[in-house]
Amino acid sequence: MSDPRVTNGAERAILENVLDRNRGALVATADGLSDADARRRLVTSLTTPLSLLKHAAAAERIWFQRFWGGLDASECDGYSERDEGTFAVGDGESLADVIAEFERASRRSREIAARFDLDEVKENPREGAVSMRWTLVAMIEEFARHAGHGDILREQIVAARS
């Protein structure tokens, strides 16, 4: 994880730092895995190290491009529907491709988020009134949870090689 930990100062700097560190932790769960290993299904759901990154890229687009940016799905840089399709990885997509996709979506999220104050609120049909602060915290939660899933999957994959 290359981002230094920010432990004091402005609330926004802390929130953005923790989110970026969790983004990095999620990417790190696939570090050194082959494309085949990153696709390996060890649970009954679609969850693999690769699909977790694909899902995270979609979450970035759903919350920042669609919700905060007001973009239509056709204007987003990838899949942005709230369904199981967020975990779908195409046969031709490599681990490097999906990491690059996630990093692109994350950069775009940072740009969109920067346009809003933490206290700005928009109405969300599922969640009600949602602030930018809540969105950043929700993304921290989402990526921390999935980094934990990725850590467990990685541990199983590496152990199976031995």
Score class of each variant (00 low, 15 high):
D151V: 04
F116Y: 15
A13Q: 13
L33D: 07
A25C: 01
V89R: 09
T47Q: 13
L153H: 13
E16W: 01
R40A: 14
V89L: 05
L33E: 07
L42A: 05
I152N: 07
L42Q: 06
P49W: 03
D35G: 11
A100D: 09
E142G: 03
D97V: 06
L42G: 08
S109W: 02
L153T: 11
L118Q: 11
S34Q: 03
E75D: 14
D35A: 08
R107P: 00
I62A: 11
D119R: 11
G90K: 14
I62S: 08
R104F: 02
R40I: 00
D83V: 05
R39Q: 05
T29G: 11
E75F: 06
S51T: 12
A30G: 13
P125D: 12
N124E: 04
K122F: 10
R126P: 00
G69T: 12
S162K: 12
G90D: 13
I112M: 08
L50V: 13
I62N: 12
G24Q: 15
D83C: 06
S2Q: 11
R23H: 14
T47V: 15
G70L: 06
G92V: 02
S34N: 02
S162D: 09
L42P: 02
A38M: 04
A57Y: 07
E75W: 04
T29N: 01
S131G: 06
R133C: 08
S131D: 05
T135L: 10
V98Y: 02
R126D: 08
D3V: 11
D119Y: 02
I112W: 07
S80H: 07
G78T: 10
I152Q: 04
Y79H: 14
T7W: 01
M139D: 00
R133Q: 13
V158L: 15
R21H: 10
V6G: 02
R154Q: 10
R41G: 13
